[in-house]
């Protein structure tokens, strides 16, 4: 476990924000870079910006159209702007089942991500900061867990939950989501680097217990890693497809992605659903984009942490 990358990342020798000062080549090397390679580089970036953003732009435009104009007007530009009316229709459709799905997703992913992060953080911290027999065994088993694909667990989880008669419940999706072996791995490495033993010792001399020290002192120093773990877990749960597919039958328990999938499969029989699928898709990605933007200061410094060898 060499930790050079992590070390450099925590110290952040170069800011992630590209500024003139942090980019020495901007002044010294600029003469050498010909106009041709600059234009070429910008052209590549420009073309791919279109590739990445046009689908989302199309979704936004399509969401603002009425059912009739969806098929008859230019897909990349607005017709009559009906976005808010469409949103209203979607929220009213079938007693607001879409809002229910959004709420479910927030609960599964938000609460689940939070619980997963705290539990993984506690375990990673203990593995990094305490010496006890079996420590390496536990860590190696957890590390093996990182390599087990989550989808391989979906089927046995279903079989086990059905024996406990817990399929088609909130818990069937929630409980498996709060286990993050990757979180333990990441927080252990981060805690070993960023929480000094002297600080824990000082806290002990002040009379604080171990648990209190963790929740008042250490957890703050581990914040960048914890936010990264939360984000990964949040995204993983929000995007999880196999578990709801195999566990849930009742519509009122669906997360939003799965609900939209269910509508999408009915499109051939019920074409009226099409605008709802499109507007729902647009609305369902907004919470993720907002979460990423709000927390980007954290995950940008945490992302590289995973690339340890």
């Amino acid at each position: 476990m060499s930790s050079t990358t992590l070390d450099q990342n925590t110290k952040q020798p170069r800011s992630l924000k590209p500024s003139k000062a942090s980019d020495p080549s901007a002044s010294a090397g600029s003469l050498k870079e010909s106009l041709l390679s600059r234009t070429g580089a910008m052209l590549i970036m420009g073309i791919f910006t279109l590739y990445f953003l046009i689908p989302i732009w199309w979704l936004f435009v399509a969401s603002s159209k009425s059912q009739g104009q969806l098929l008859t007007t230019n897909g990349l530009w607005f017709a009559d702007f009906n976005l808010f009316q469409n949103i209203g229709d979607l929220f009213a459709y079938r007693d607001g089942v879409f809002l229910r799905w959004m709420g479910n997703s927030v609960l599964y992913a938000g609460l689940g991500g939070l619980v997963a992060t705290i539990i993984a953080g506690m375990c990673g911290y203990a593995l990094a900061k305490y010496r006890f027999p079996g420590r390496e065994v536990i860590f190696n088993v957890v590390l093996g867990g990182v390599l087990v694909p989550a989808t391989a667990l979906a089927l046995p989880l279903f079989l086990l939950f059905s024996q406990a008669q817990l399929t088609n419940t909130f818990w069937a999706v929630f409980l498996p989501s709060i286990v993050s072996p990757f979180g333990v791995y990441l927080t252990r490495i981060f805690a070993a680097q960023s929480v000094p033993d002297e600080l824990i010792e000082a806290s002990r001399i002040d009379g604080a217990g171990e648990i209190r020290t963790f929740f008042t002192v250490s957890i703050r120093l581990m914040a960048p890693a914890l936010v990264t773990v939360f984000l990964f877990q949040f995204v993983a749960i929000w995007n999880n497809f196999f578990l709801p597919l195999i566990m849930l039958r009742s519509e009122e328990l669906f997360p939003v992605t799965f609900g939209l999938y269910a509508w999408n499969t009915q499109l051939n029989q019920v074409p009226e659903l099409r605008p709802y699928v499109l507007i729902g898709a647009l609305l369902s990605i907004i919470p993720l984009i907002v979460t990423f933007l709000l927390l980007q200061r954290f995950w940008r410094s945490g992302l590289g942490t995973g690339s340890l060898k």
């Binding site: 791919f48 995007n239 939209l260 699928v277």
Partner: peptide, 16 residues
Amino acid sequence: AFFVPYAVPGVIAAIM
């Protein structure tokens, strides 16, 4: 701009 699609769940991206 390049990172935004990562915020789109696989199901939604596939629908789009």
